[in-house]
Amino acid sequence: MEIVTSQLANGVVVGTTIALTALGLTLIFGIMHIVNLAHGEFYALGAYFTWVAYSLLNKFWVSAAIGIVATAIIGAALLMIFYDKLKGAGPLRWALLTLGFGYVLRELMQLVFGTDFKLVAPPLEGTIPWAGGVYRIAVTVAGLLLILALALFLKKSRYGVLIRAIANNRDAAALVGVSTKTIYTWVALISAGLAGAAGAFMLPVTSAYPTMGLEIMIMAFVVVVVGGMGNIQGALIASLLAGLAQSLLTLIVEPTVATIIVLVAFMLVLVVRREGLQKLW
């Protein structure tokens, strides 16, 4: 029985990680209409940057903050560098451009860090019966707090209002002086930062390795589509579902098979309900 509850707890951790990554994806999609195929690499960058900072400073939470900020800056720089050149380009060209970024980033990380696992000991020790490691719980709480902060930021803050205005009606926002490029830069920073946060938080759990981004990105895309593209609440719930399903399935089948089952199940949802799980809640 304890193995089931600890897998449940694990599922919540995985779900939170997917949610952080997926929210970045859904933000950039909902506001800039970009399918960012390099998003998974931002997650990996977050983990690697944190690892580098940790090996220099030996303080995990500070290193995580550094990792997140560095990822946000690099991610936003990549997304905005060709923004003017790609003005008016459809989703296809953006998808291919970010795919190209993905190739380059993944290979660079492999060149710089090698293919071995970069380990970091969890900053919080000890376990809680029925629930697993203390660090995992702390990370879940931190992740959910971050998501809450994002929701509040979008709802209440100055930039939040401007971001929602652009997402809702780009022209009407521009006509009263909202600079789309500035807002997009902010959105790109937040989006990459969220992926970086997920990567930084998972570093002590999964350690860092070059293909980690690819794996999480697939899941993130699944939940973004199923949760209703551009829909934050939907992505959050779908993420937790996917994380739980995957963790529980690994009790009975191989991890790859668990991934396949989750993938196929979610795609079936999409076939049955075109708008995904949106509007079910």
């Binding site: 060709f82 050149k85 380009a89 451009l97 190209g100 970024f101 190739y103 380059v104 290979e107 060149l111």
Partner: peptide
Amino acid sequence: AYPIFLGLLFIVVVVWAP
């Protein structure tokens, strides 16, 4: 590390030769 060049080729095609 030829994927780097592959990625750069993607970027070049998309940005300069759409």
